[in-house]
Simulated assay, not measured.
Amino acid sequence: MRTYVITGGTDGIGKGLGLHFLSRGDRVIAVASNPAKGRAFMAEAERLGAAGRARFLRADLSTVAGMRSAVAEVEADLDVLDGLVFATQRFQARREETADGLEYTFALSYLSRFVIGHELTGLLDRAAAPVVLNLAGPGGLPGRIHWDDPQLRRGYSGKTAAMQASRCNDLLGVGFPRSHPGTKIRYVLYNPLFVKTGMADPLPQPMRAVTKTLALLLAQRVERAVVPMAALMDDPPAEPVSAFRRGKPLPLTGKDFDPEAADRLHRLTLEILNG
């Protein structure tokens, strides 16, 4: 039996992966903020006969305190962690700040992955073949990091924030083994492309209606989309970090995977956390 922690584990792809692992006999801790969705996840686990192997851990991963509280609870509950999945994200059409004064998308979709991933390294390294699966956007839509304004106080748009978070996560993956030389952990960046989830719900109209219509025609079902992700966690690449677009390997080349930029982002992130 393997043990997995999944942020965003009560909805969409995160939930799909959690139920996939539970159905085959593994243990899952689903980290999310919505108690109603947490109860629904636990009810589905019970229907699978897996209630004793499932846990809903409520945490606000948009705040540093919430991130570290989740880490502390996982560390108190587990001796070893086989896999860590980052699936938490939420589109924000309007700019919002968290309790820490950080732009919401930056905090939730990138910073939580930085904090939780680095702080759970000890538990992961106790596993035989530990894997981090970061559901980000390698090989997807373009975007850039706004080095002079990472909190996007100027010129905010939901798309700009989402694409910046994706580029940050690309560099987070590249930088992870540089921060943990000698680690056994394999870091996998994965772009699932179009999947039928509730991600369109926060979009403004008419974008929401258009996206949902396209999803009906083109998107993969969650149950199908999670299969190659689970396979990568079962048998990860030999390289310390790798990237995939719907199961297709991507070269770690170009500015999106620049090691020097990864080091720069790591320093900037530590400044934000220590500021």
Rank of each mutant, 00 (worst) to 15 (best):
F56M: 01
D125E: 15
I6R: 00
M163H: 09
L81E: 06
L273A: 03
A136Y: 03
L171W: 07
G101S: 12
A87H: 01
A72S: 14
L57Y: 10
F21P: 00
R246V: 11
A51H: 09
L214Q: 08
A230Q: 10
L124M: 14
E44P: 03
S33L: 10
A136C: 14
S109L: 03
Q205L: 11
A200N: 04
K184L: 10
I145R: 10
P150K: 07
L268I: 03
G83Q: 09
G139D: 11
G137C: 09
R47K: 15
I13H: 01
A165F: 00
V241E: 05
R47Y: 03
P202A: 08
G38H: 01
Q220D: 13
S112N: 06
G182A: 12
R24F: 09
R90M: 11
G117D: 05
R53L: 00
P251Q: 02
F56D: 01
H118N: 14
R94P: 01
T98P: 05
Q205E: 15
D234W: 03
G198Y: 07
T197N: 11
Y104T: 06
L270T: 04
A54W: 13
R90E: 12
F21L: 12
L273D: 02
S23E: 10
V226D: 12
A107H: 14
V28W: 08
F86E: 07
P202D: 06
G175V: 04
G247A: 00
L120H: 01
H180S: 11
L17H: 02
G275E: 04
A65C: 07
G198F: 10
A128C: 02
Y4C: 07
E223L: 01
G158F: 13
R113I: 04
M199G: 06
S166G: 08
Y156H: 07
T98F: 15
Y104R: 15
V227W: 14
L19A: 11
V64H: 02
R144E: 14
V74R: 02
Q151E: 11
P228R: 12
V188S: 08
Y190S: 01
F114I: 08
A93M: 11
V64C: 04
V132M: 15
R55S: 08
H118F: 04
P138F: 08
I185V: 15
V85K: 00
L78Q: 02
L217Y: 05
G117Q: 09
Y156M: 04
E103N: 12
V31P: 05
G83S: 09
M233Q: 06
K255A: 15
E44A: 10
F114Y: 15
G247P: 05
R39V: 03
H20V: 02
N274D: 12
P237C: 08
D11P: 00
G275Q: 10
P236R: 10
A162H: 13
G275K: 10
A238T: 11
N134G: 10
A76D: 15
A65S: 13
Y187H: 13
A87V: 00
S179T: 06
R24G: 06
P35Y: 12
N274E: 14
E96L: 13
W147H: 09
A209L: 14
V132D: 01
E239F: 03
R221M: 03
D263P: 01
F21N: 00
Y104G: 02
L172S: 09
G155W: 07
G18Y: 04
V226K: 13
A209Q: 11
A107Y: 04
F91T: 06
Y110T: 03
P35Q: 08
M1V: 13
F91A: 07
Q205P: 07
D234P: 02
D170W: 06
R39A: 15
